[in-house]
Design a protein around this nucleic acid. Structure first.
Lengths: 338, 338
DNA sequence: CTGAAAGCGCTTACAG
DNA sequence: CTGAAAGCGCTTACAG
């Protein structure tokens, strides 16, 4: 591959001059500029980003460590993150933690080794000493979706409490009393928030959340399946199951179908996270939608603010209930219930 | 951040010695080795991957340019690619082309600027002069899923022809005669292969595929919606629509529902690509499944073979038909039809 | 076994 | 406006 030396030779100038035109430095003569441009084109020269990064100590790259790429919510988040980053002149490298803390730490380390300019993390289960270290060492960092208490960096997330309260009110109004939850890992903030909000909302209706109605999941489909099997085996199974994310809802559907039961006649189902398929499942699923695009964009902006020396803002956006048919809702009078 | 100099100073050796223990070079005295190790731990030293790459001219990083991250098929592919790459000691950087050739080329260029060791591409619509250049310039490269004729690099893909023949036979046996397809971009190999295989299979049953029954899509949901609307507006709408990927099938479902029609009573639907949600849609969708995991792994292995100087193999794996309920199939006698 | 030195491809003060 | 030179953090022949 052609290097800056080749361009300099071809254009008859020094590498310094080539570098200047490449970086649009003002003090270059028009003549030199055109000769360099011509040489660049002729050679198909592209600056070596590795060398540039070593020299300038910046990579114009953001790292994104995501809990689980196979989760459509995170995929969508990643997509918006990349889009906003690109608009601001940054690339993003994604690391998939697969909900495993060790894999998460592996990616954080790899990303740091590559000297990314900033780190966007949605922390997996458990607390990571690494994460606290990174934050303390001054690497620009922000949490998206989930965060870690005690690590002092900006947080961009959705608050699901109001929507969960709306959901419980909705279920209560439909006459349901025995409600259960497939919870995410207690060590994740979203996992914890969703159970607590659910419990509080039940209390407001003088309902309780007995331990047998709290199934411990890990935000992945298999756990939703296992927990639901246990719920169904109860002497008095719950009337409605609330899955704390869309993948566990998928697992719940698998288990319900395998048991030969039907939603919502035999058991109701609601989910946190809304995805396009929920409109077309049998039945369409009542869910809580997050403003994923806004979340991704706001997170990037906060991170770039830190990287570029401005002061970042934490952002909390509301989630909202989307009522469909999976909890025994009456048939809609309109055709579409998207 | 601590550099190799700091470690050398702390351990009382030269940077050369530090570098040797870091790279497990044999000729280092046990004493020096332990002192360096201690210094590394004490300082929390991590080698700067940027500097190392500049010096060694390798990044141990693979680039993956994917057609569309929001497509679950590609998300899954990406996940397996990363997994296999990690097992072989490589990182992967993903670029999302969003089915847009310019965005694809942007990512290819960025990846090349970062001096990735090899490139895995599933080319978007249109032909890219860039891609041919890259291949000619000797950058290790392999195509996954889709490929570009005329660009001489290994291809790892699924062959859908047999499965499509099976699908058409299945539809024919169910009594359907007016079959239509929502095609992918004609300039993509998969887009083209799927229409052609469909057309041939119809011919084998003495059926034709008139132009009005070929809707031009782009592998994304919106196009599936638009094409389906047009099919439904036909004086004689097709009895079954075959969507050439899962996202266009989603769009088709949207359009059918918006028209107040039902699958399969009013119109049948089948899809290329199988995803977990197809078991739970209303009705469960008859689809063609690709061996995504095998594809991703084989692609990485082929690429790493090139990178490390071995000779790579192109791989073609079969896809297979998964019959469910969306084409008017009789109700199953077993509970699960996954 | 060990260290001094060169060099990877850039950028940027410095001097002119 | 321009170039020579230093230096970013590593690795690796070379000499001892």
């Amino acid at each position: 591959m052609a290097s800056i030396k080749d361009v300099a030779a071809q254009a008859g100038v020094s590498v310094a001059t080539v570098s200047r035109v490449l970086n649009s430095h003002p003090s270059v003569s028009p003549d030199a500029r055109t000769r360099v441009r011509a040489a660049v084109d002729a050679l198909g020269y592209r600056p070596n980003a590795v060398a540039r990064s070593l020299r300038t100590d910046q990579t114009r790259t953001l790292g994104l460590v995501i809990s689980d790429v196979l989760n459509p919510y995170f995929t969508e988040l990643a997509r918006f993150v990349e889009e906003e980053a690109r608009a601001l002149g940054y690339s993003v490298i994604i690391g998939n933690a697969d909900e495993r803390p060790e894999l998460q730490d592996h990616h954080v380390r790899t990303l740091l080794d590559r000297r990314i300019d900033g780190l966007l993390v949605s922390p997996a289960d458990g607390d990571s000493a690494l994460m606290a270290d990174v934050a303390r060492d001054g690497t620009p960092m922000v949490f998206v979706d989930r965060w870690m208490p005690g690590v002092d960096v900006p947080v961009v997330r959705a608050d699901g409490r109001d929507a969960i309260r709306d959901l419980v009110a909705h279920l209560h109004a439909l006459g349901h009393r025995r409600l259960a939850i497939i919870a995410g890992p207690a060590a994740t903030t979203t996992g914890n928030e969703r159970v607590e909000a659910f419990r509080e909302a039940l209390r407001a209706h003088r309902l309780t959340l007995p331990d047998v109605h709290i199934g411990q999941g890990d935000f992945q489909a298999d756990s939703g399946r296992r927990v639901t099997e246990r719920f169904l085996a109860l002497p008095e199974p719950p009337e409605v199951v609330f899955a704390a994310d869309n993948l566990m809802a998928l697992g719940a559907l698998d288990a319900i179908r395998a048991a030969g039961l039907r939603v919502p006649q035999d058991i109701g189902l609601a989910a946190f996270d809304d995805i396009p398929w929920f409109v077309h499942t049998d039945p369409p699923i009542t869910a809580i939608a997050q403003p994923t695009g806004e979340l991704g964009r706001a997170a990037v902006r906060a991170l770039v603010d830190i990287v570029e020396g401005r002061s970042p803002r934490s952002v909390t956006l509301p989630a909202r209930l989307v009522v469909r048919r999976s909890c025994g809702e009456p048939a809609p009078d309109r055709r579409s219930n998207r």
